[in-house]
Design a protein around this nucleic acid. Structure first.
Lengths: 159, 159
DNA sequence: CTGATTGCAAACGGTTTGCAGGCTT
DNA sequence: AAGCCTGCAAACCGTTTGCAATCAG
């Protein structure tokens, strides 16, 4: 009797999508990966199990998983396809130098939205906080990385 | 005596960058535009003033402006190059259907970070909140746009 | 006059698409 | 058996780069 296989099979039938070997391996590969792996990284990892799998299939199925609610896409306006592997509510620390993203537990940050009175009848689904700054590694690596962006003194034209 | 021209000239000399016609027009075009225009859109608009300007120049100079602190790039982990035209502190409402982004005054939202105790010695510069949901237009337009993403009932596999 | 800046066109990286063959139901 | 799914290769889109001609300091 399959264990995780059974779980995945149920996941698919609930959503009316076919159970294929690639999908199952993709699903399990992604669940094993921490952080916010790129499709490329997921693909690379999947190849250890199915060497012949194509990147196109990875893309198609990540989209399928996101569309059917198996995974959640991170920051909707993000340009590249990244998926949340962390199922807990959380926010992000984003390093402005190396762009690495680290999760922060939702409980660490206190956000209060105005009582459903956002402008323009916007219906709120959720809310995600990006803490922008410099990660420890980049601080240690010294100042010479991307100097202009970070050493600017006058952020606003004085006009 | 030039008015905004003088202002721009000063902006450049302060930062040690050359004053060119393209840069001046780019700067003014961007300041006139609301929201978070794409380089493509900025380019299109610039052409009404300098029809021969190239998209490459637009890219190069948006980067230059961001690097020298004239403008601020929005959400660092954003994939595509977008710049903040709004100089006030603010956050964003992002429509998960049409991906439109609307600004919300910072004062409307109350965010509290833990007292400089973020994990891993991260140095905080600023913090930006994305309120994710559905804009009024998309609500009015009805449910049939991108059905799967929004009508999903079971967000987490039940296991 | 010298080096920075521009416009062009080609390269690039990530993502999407069309299609023929194979697999799931 | 019917249709969805896969892998491949080509197309695509936004962005970057190399280069020769031009411009700012």
């Amino acid at each position: 009797m399959p264990t995780s296989s059974a779980h995945f099979r149920r996941l698919c039938t609930e959503r009316g999508i076919a159970v294929t070997h690639q999908r199952q391996v993709l699903y399990e590969t992604m669940r094993e990966m921490k952080g916010h792996p790129s499709p490329e990284e997921v693909h690379e990892r999947m190849r250890t199990t199915i060497p012949s799998v194509s990147l196109a299939t990875v893309y198609k199925n990540i989209h399928l998983f996101v569309a059917s609610g198996v995974f959640r896409q991170m920051s909707v306006h993000h340009g590249t396809l990244r998926v949340e592997m962390n199922r807990e509510e959380h926010h992000h620390m984003v390093c402005s130098i190396c762009r690495s993203i680290t999760d922060v537990e939702a409980s660490e940050i206190d956000v209060r939205l105005p009582e459903n009175r956002l402008p323009g009848g916007f219906r709120v689904e959720r809310c995600s906080v990006d803490i922008i700054g410099v990660c420890a590694a980049c601080q240690a690596a010294g100042k010479n990385t991307m100097p202009a962006q970070t050493t600017v003194t006058e952020l606003r034209p004085s006009h």
